Structures are given as C-alpha cells and as structure tokens.
Amino acid sequence: MQENNDLPDPAVRVSKLSYVEFRTPDLDRMVEYYTKVLDFNLVEQTAQSAFITTGSDHHCVVLTKGDSAARTNVGYEIWEELGDAQRRLRDAGYDVERRSDIAPGTPDVLVLTEPTTGIDLHLFADQDLVGATEYTPLRPTKLGHVAAFTPELDPLQKFYQELLGFKWSDTVGDFFVFLRCNSDHHAANFMSSTKNEGMHHIAYEMRDPNHLISMLDHLAAHDYRLHWGPGRHGPGHNMFTYHKDPDGNTIELFTQIDVVHDESKGYWEPRPWHESFPMYPKTWEVDIATANHWGPFDQGSLDH
C-alpha cells in the first residue's frame, strides 16, 4: 500500500500498546522467568493464567496455560469512548463484541479479529492501576512493541492506519513495516511471509545503555545467552539485544528508540547516529546496515 500518513480520520485512536498474551505449557516456569529473570511484577495468578506487569497498569503480559504460542491476543488502550468506537468500527464493516469477562484489570473491552492473522485484538479505555507499586532498578520500563508475521501485509497495514489511527514510520524493502501509535517509532511491526506465522519478537524497553547492560549481566547469571546483539537497528535506531525465553519466543531488550513528535518536520529528537538531518519516514534497503549498523547480521531477523 502507499506509505501515506495523511489519511482520513480513523475509526478509533490507539494511544499505546498495552499487553500481549502468550500460551505456555509450563505456566510456573514462564512466571519464574518473567519475575526472577526480567524482574516483572506478578499481580495475579491462578492455575490457568498469570498477569504480569512492568508498571502501574494491571498487566502488560498475560500468560495462559496451553500449547505454546506467542501473541495469541494483543491489547491496545484507546482515546475513545468504547460505545462510539464500537459503532464506528461496525460502520467500517468489522464485527465487534463488547465484553466484561476478558481479564481482571480490564472490565470493559471491545474484541475484534485482526485481519490476515486471525488473532483477537482487545481495545479498552484504560486498565486498573494496581500493578507494580514500587520502583526496582532492574525491571524494564515498559512493553515497547511486538512484531508479527502476516501472509498479506497491505491489508493489515491499511487496517492499522485507517481503522486504528497508527502512522507509518519506516519500511524495510517491501515486506517489513514499522507503525506507531504515539511518539515511539513503532509499537507494531509486521513482516510479510508465506512460510512463517505468529510472533516475530516482543520487545521491552530499558532506560539507557547502563540499564540494558545490568539486565544482560542478570540474564547471564541465570544462564540466558544472547543470540544477537548488542547492535543498533536502522529503522528506529534502537540499541537492541535478543534472547529466547523458556518457550523459545524471541525477546528483545532495547533502548534509545527514535522519538517522532512531528514527521512533517522530521524526527524531532535528533540523534548523532542518524543518517540524515532531519530524519523522515522512509523505505530502507535490505542490507546488513539496515538490520544492524554495528556489525553482525542475524539472517533470521529478516527471514520471511
């Protein structure tokens, strides 16, 4: 689709990526990873599920017992009143259900199906603020973004831009798009693929390089090794590291992501590592420097 941020008023306006659900065959093992290794706060746990957070929101990660699967649903906070958002989404031709039984902390939720992937999206006005109540120096600051494969990129990008109000930030080649819902360079990114499906990776933000290094030392002490990084991406320019969680899902820990206040005037927080001044959304070449400015290329990062 045409990379155009001058789109009609969207049906709803997403304000942030709020949570992602994982299914896991070993719930206790995943809870231990998130709480003991990544230092998240466990808010609630039952025999079938756990709700975990980095901040004051009730949860940013939902773990559900079952066959291993990542990004089984995604929750987005929106600016809109839910009744109005439901009407406008239905007017746009989407089936939308309003439910009060999705999860603790989110008693009023709109549920609709994400085009091309078939997963559920949850839209809501806010979460109960009963999550982490005290600061810890190791914990990631927030859920940053989630990347997924899709068999058809254009209709999914159109859905996110025209129906959910996302803006285009960058594209790699013709197959990997980065979309934002606030000033962070991307909250959702999608890679076109006919051989892969599901989640590509999920990313948690660290405050700065020192915070990231402290977490990497903590990972090493718990026998978690990086399979790529540290490095610096081209799109978003975030400093990145990647490792695998106990179920084999790819986890990115990152810092220094681009902040886009007004794309019409360029990226309004210039960084010394930018390639041009000011920076604007663009289509990147498919090469090593796009994936990692600093060096080694992980073939799996752009394997679609």
Rank of each mutant, 00 (worst) to 15 (best):
D154K: 10
D67T: 10
R29F: 01
P8S: 04
P246L: 04
S276D: 15
L42K: 06
V130Q: 12
H293W: 12
M199K: 01
S100M: 04
L138N: 12
Y224G: 01
T290K: 05
M206Q: 11
D174E: 11
D128N: 14
N210K: 12
T136W: 04
K167G: 12
N41P: 03
S214L: 12
L138D: 13
G93P: 09
R99F: 01
D258A: 09
A132N: 02
F166Q: 03
D95A: 14
Q256F: 12
F51E: 10
V286T: 10
H233T: 00
G234Y: 08
P278Y: 04
E97S: 13
S18R: 13
E81Y: 11
Y204M: 09
D28C: 01
H261K: 13
P272S: 08
V61F: 04
G231D: 10
G295D: 00
H274N: 15
H304R: 11
V14F: 08
W168M: 05
E97D: 13
F166A: 03
Q48G: 15
A188I: 14
K158C: 11
Q86V: 02
D287A: 07
V62W: 07
F297G: 13
L82K: 02
D262H: 06
P140A: 05
V109S: 00
D101Q: 06
D174H: 10
T290M: 04
T46A: 06
M279D: 15
A11F: 04
L27G: 01
D91A: 15
G248E: 00
E205R: 10
T141D: 11
D101T: 03
V259P: 03
S301I: 06
Y34L: 00
L156Y: 02
M1I: 12
L153E: 07
